[in-house]
Design a protein around this nucleic acid. Structure first.
Lengths: 354, 354
DNA sequence: CTGAAAGCGCTAACAA
DNA sequence: TTGTTAGCGCTTTCAG
């Protein structure tokens, strides 16, 4: 039993379809077709081949298949920085839902830099990647766009109109609308927003959501500080600047995880009393937010669910829609506000506007 | 100029060595050899070939090379869970130092499960991965060990003697020795250790470090609670159990990031006063530790540096040591204790043992 | 120093 | 329903 197999294997390392063909005394193409579940092979023959393949420990040679034009089983995940727990969560969820389908994940960090992004895309496409799941950078290179449009891809979180219509994202506007509304309901009127610049589509929706909330309330005054999305130091500086104003804001909302972390750092090291001196609403749901001070009120995003949905859709698209024109599909998931100890009603009379 | 090239490319999509050969009117094998920098090709010919290749936009077909036995440019990174910031940091650092060398990173999450681990290793080896950088699971499958030993690989953090001697890790014993010593110097004598079970090599060294520190001090009493390494809930339960003891510990040290997070959760939600009621030393250096309460005293590990060193070594090993027997090399990096607000001298007389 | 030819393992025309 | 044949792009003998 084992001897025969051992003999086969020792021949050149691995079992090939030719080996199976010899053993079954049929032609290699029949074996190949049976393995590919070709419709013109009889069921009984398929059985025999599959059985033999299993017994002999056959593993397809992916390199050979790729040379014949097949794409690899690699899915490229392109994110700005994997250390951002946001993206780590995405990587985890995607990996978990692509594996059962036989796909593997390769990691590309773009640093939010168009050139780095382009290089990775080049590498991925030349390696015949099955597809790309990408959080596009702020300024994608034209070449990146061309290359992506020749490859199955899905956009995650951020959305560029020049790429495919396949997008899985979060209702960013809603997130900030909720955050700001919460503060307004607590009586705050001078509210700051520290978030990412409006160049990024997500950045823009967030500012707009913030503004929309304030627009609905008389006497509400928004103070915006916009900067690089992944920069903690920007947020730190911004909060210092805001608090040094002649009439500083009584509350602040943030528009990215990194900004939130930066602000928490600054507030903690400066011993600013939250929420007495300043109410704070964070962005995202880092575990640590629960125990920052007396708990950080924050907008949580169903990132894991989003990524899973995206992964499932990817499989669906790549597996089934191979030839047909990709359907457009995009999904927008909703954030939730979690109220904890970092926000409180505005009570100091001097700050109430009327 | 461009027309000729366009004609070539339109033939079948990409430029091949055959195309270059035709254009230069030489044989394909000469081109192949020139590209491979074969010593028996004249310098002038190499020049011509390289120039033509560049002009025509030749890109090597990796699939074809792989079929001829070459390994891919993929490096498999196997970690328990990428959401653990520890491993995310490692992924980032590795990715950054492997990219310039032309390697790409694929992500495999083992869940600390021997079977999952095996499946990933199978996939990686059958895909002719250039090498594997692995944080071995608690119970590697025998097959995993066999497969790994046929592939260039490096162990990270955890170390298994049955695998290669290539290891990059942290002096775990030292980490807990320092943590415990710090508490002893503050006068604590009843000190608890919550950490991972001694099955994992890292787990064992940590317990031993803890014990070694206590052994040096008269009257010091250690209370150990060991459990699954990545389980926050284990740590939470453990701390409750310890605090419910008739004579509870006055200080606690932890032996994993997840355990630390679990304990911080528990302490925060139970409003246990730190360091007045309990001194706490954490493990790892999550950014959030800085602002947990009045700052968490913790043992920080140079994870990023460790990963970079590992990546550089990997390149060195794979690129240069291809044929020769891999040299054994292992590196142990040192942790540092960062003292913040969560530890204080023991003052309550009733708790001093003599 | 260079060329011709033979495959690697698989798939896809073409036959039967 | 199955077999035959001819490559994919590259490396690697073996001959010049």
């Amino acid at each position: 039993m084992t001897t025969r197999r051992a003999a086969r294997q020792s021949a050149s390392g691995a079992v090939t379809i030719k080996d199976i063909a010899e053993r079954l005394d049929i032609s290699p193409s029949t074996v190949g077709r049976a393995l590919a579940d070709d419709r013109r092979i009889s069921a009984s023959m398929k059985q025999r081949v599959l059985k033999a393949a299993a017994e002999m420990g056959y593993v397809a040679n992916h390199a050979a298949r790729m040379m014949r034009g097949a794409s690899s089983n690699l899915v490229g995940l392109m994110v700005p920085d994997i250390r951002n727990s946001f993206y780590a969560t995405i990587a985890h969820a995607l990996s978990k839902c692509l594996e059962p389908e036989g796909f593997r994940l390769t990691l590309s960090e773009t640093d939010d830099n168009g050139l780095t992004e382009l290089q990775h895309i080049r590498a991925l496409t030349s390696a015949k990647t099955a597809g790309i799941i990408i959080v596009p950078s702020a300024q994608p290179h034209p070449d990146s766009i061309n290359l992506l449009n020749e490859t199955p891809h899905i956009q995650l979180l951020r959305w560029r109109a020049t790429l495919s219509q396949q997008w899985f994202g979060i209702d960013d506007g809603q997130a900030l609308y909720q955050a700001a509304t919460h503060l307004l309901e607590l009586g705050h009127r001078r509210i700051a927003y520290i978030g990412s610049s409006a160049q990024l589509p997500t950045g823009r929706s967030r500012v707009e959501g913030f503004q929309a909330a304030l627009a609905g309330v008389d006497g509400a005054q928004g103070i915006e500080a916009l900067g690089a999305p992944e920069s903690k130091s920007f947020a730190r500086n911004a909060i210092y600047r805001l608090l040094a104003l002649r009439s500083p804001p009584t509350a602040v909302v943030t528009g990215s995880v990194q900004h939130t972390l930066g602000i928490l750092d600054a507030l903690a090291s400066d011993r600013i009393r939250v929420p007495e001196e300043l109410s704070v609403v964070g962005f995202g749901d880092e575990p640590a937010f629960r125990w920052w001070g007396s708990g950080l009120t924050t907008v949580t995003l169903p990132v894991s669910e989003l990524a899973t949905a995206c992964g499932l859709w990817f499989v669906h698209q790549v597996i089934r829609q191979r030839s047909t024109n990709p359907v457009s599909y995009s999904s927008l998931c909703q954030p939730t506000l979690v109220v904890r100890g970092s926000t409180s009603p505005l009570e100091r009379s001097g700050d109430v506007l009327r």
